[in-house]
């Protein structure tokens, strides 16, 4: 209880002091999200998801059609804040790609794409510590974290992801409580 109160007071102090400054940002994450942008930029979402989970010896995000699920989840599962951060993030990615590499994200080399996503990761670091938690709660998760988490959920629950990268066992039939791991043991897709 004390810890929670302490967090609350930090939150209120910080919030009060920066209220005027963040007014514009508040509008940015609470405005009516531009959902049509998502359908018009399927390829961008697909290329971003592939940068997060690339094809290796198993299929990557693109082959698993992760972008369709990410777009569906942004539309239907994400709250308004997350929708706006994600859609604005896509616009920022295009802007950044154009200004740094004079091309849209989808046209970049794999190395350049990694560099762009790396930039947004570094910009959006907001997991760790109490301050990070408050920031997440107040401002929403960063674009990078939304992209990463939604792509991962979409990938790990896809048929390709679940059955090829992970181990999928729809009807186990029995429970074996302690099994020696084998070399290259894959993690279960469902729990």
């Amino acid at each position: 209880m004390n810890r929670r109160k302490a967090i609350l007071s930090i939150f209120l102090l910080g919030g009060g002091a920066t209220a005027v400054f963040t007014g514009y940002k508040w509008y940015g994450i609470h405005k009516k999200p531009d959902l049509s942008f998502l359908d018009a930029h399927q390829a961008l979402v697909a290329d971003l998801a592939e940068t997060i989970i690339p094809a290796t010896d198993t299929p990557g995000a693109k082959q698993a059609m992760v972008h369709l699920t990410v777009i569906s989840m942004i539309k239907e599962v994400a709250d308004r804040k997350t929708k706006n951060i994600f859609i604005d993030g896509l616009k920022d990615v295009e802007h950044y790609s154009n200004s740094h590499f004079s091309n849209s994200f989808s046209e970049l080399t794999a190395t350049q794409q990694i560099e762009v996503v790396g930039h947004f990761r570094d910009e959006g670091k907001n997991y760790s510590g109490t301050i990070g938690k408050i920031k997440n709660k107040f401002a929403g998760k960063s674009f990078f974290h939304i992209l990463k988490e939604y792509s991962t959920i979409a990938f790990c629950t896809s048929k390709n992801g679940a059955t090829k990268t992970l181990a999928y066992d729809f009807i186990p039939g029995k429970f074996e409580p302690c099994l020696q791991m084998t070399p290259g043991q894959k993690s279960w897709a469902t729990k």
């Binding site: 989970i53 690339p54 290796t56 198993t58 990268t165 043991q185 993690s187």
Partner: peptide
């Protein structure tokens, strides 16, 4: 993110 992240996902934590 990328190939190393995919490898991490595939391993039991």
């Amino acid at each position: 993110f990328g190939a190393s992240f995919k490898e991490q996902l595939a391993k039991p934590g």
